[in-house]
Design a binder for these strands. Structure first.
Lengths: 241, 241
DNA sequence: TCAATTATTTTTGTATACAAAATTGAAGCG
DNA sequence: CGCTTCAATTTTGTATACAAAAATAATTGA
């Protein structure tokens, strides 16, 4: 067989991007730890340390860090190493803009085409999140809250937008970790509940509106004013003395 | 300094994702060759061969292939190697859906907020594309046509949506290579021209509409009927004899 | 004492050697 | 002649050794 395009190729055997299941597991573990705020933004991720933790060589850790960088939750600085990403205010704003665009679209599709399938799936999920929150497991709660939004892509049968949304949601976690104002309940549960109602009723526009408000609500509970700590003109500050 | 978050980190030194400029150049070269249809979908990309071509070790080629896989224009099959991606019909459809969503949004923003800045930039670009086409350099024409669409993200100052769009556009190139019907002029030049008019006039809704039609036009000139070569039920076909 | 410079250590980047898996080609059997 | 089985070859996956760069510590001279 001299043919360049093999059947296996067309069949699209999707193993996750890292090929090996063990690599995938390590990736997921680091990913989860970043997203649930256990590793705060800016944390240095030294290769050697990760090697020891997971008992693998540097090659594999390197591949995983590169993947995380592609997810935009890790920043790779040449010759300096990997850090948990620290999104800027501008990035934060655009993440929310993009989320509104994508999620309003998805929720509209789901409400229009998948009302019946949606309700049980979504309600079961909200239920699980409620339980995690009551049990005090905030890590799981954050993860489940993100997954709720990802379910829209699943229901709309939109893997490409889903993958993009997955990125946006994990970046949102970092943004919240950096810019949250003291008393923040990330995703209000009752907002999810009323969203489910609109979807199940097939009210696409109403659902889109609720999603829009929901996301604006999250954004508005952050402190995204431009002039943050850095950005100070040393000259002006010091010339007062 | 024991601090985990360094100043260099915050400053976000964006070197391209591959760190080294030489790696970036190799990446760009392979990327361009795939997108301009020199390497057709399904082509096997053997590591050793690429090493010889570019005179570098396998480690670096590997990183570059991994990056291309993240762009979704290369598929990595575990233990089998890298292939130029071969998007399915379903993927093709979703790429166009996502493009309509993103590009209509961007063009609306540009028409509403950047009318004055937009016209000269866009017209100069269309001009260059026209020249390439007349010179018969179809590779450059394809590239420039894609860049025209990317300019919207630039003008709208939306790097995140821009990066996503960059992916979608390069995937479109593969899709066109696979599913085009005989006489296809990829992006109609005059459609771009009327789009520029609407933008420069600040007619956001009109511009969005034109973009929508433009993208639907491209999609409609493809042959995206579901039952393609594979997908045949062997039993049914053979039981007739 | 403090700043600048140099030496040392640490950490990342790349090539390469070796192991594992897949492909190819050759026998062997029906 | 076609099909399976097994060996030989090719190709990918990973660890590791070494080079390059950055961070840290020590030294020197005002």
């Amino acid at each position: 067989m001299n043919e360049s395009l093999s059947k296996a190729q067309r069949a699209l055997i999707h193993y996750g991007k890292l090929g090996d299941p063990e690599n995938e597991a390590i990736y997921q573990q680091i990913f989860a730890t970043i997203v649930d705020h256990s590793l705060p933004p800016g944390t240095k991720l030294k290769e050697e340390t990760l090697c020891e933790i997971f008992g693998v060589g540097r090659t594999r850790i390197r591949k995983i860090l590169f993947q995380l960088a592609n997810d935009n939750i890790v920043t790779l600085v040449p010759n300096r190493g990997a850090y948990v990403a620290y999104p800027s205010v501008a990035e934060a704003r655009e993440v929310f803009t993009a989320r509104r665009l994508v999620e309003c679209h998805l929720v509209r599709v789901v409400a229009a085409e998948q009302q019946e399938r949606a309700r049980p799936l979504l309600e079961e999920h909200v239920q699980r999140e409620r339980q995690a929150r009551q049990a005090g497991d905030m890590g799981a709660a954050i993860r489940l809250c993100g997954e709720f939004h990802l379910l829209m892509a699943e229901l709309a049968d939109s893997p490409i937008l889903g993958e993009f949304l997955r990125e946006l949601i994990s970046r949102t976690s970092l943004i919240v970790a950096i810019y949250e104002r003291p008393p923040v309940h990330n995703c209000e549960m009752d907002e999810h509940a009323s969203l489910i109602e609109a979807i199940a009723a097939g009210q696409a526009e109403q659902a889109a509106l609720l999603m829009e408000e929901h996301l604006r609500g999250i954004e508005s509970r952050l402190d995204l004013r431009p002039p943050r700590s850095q950005e100070v003109d040393i000259r002006k500050v010091l010339s007062k003395a």
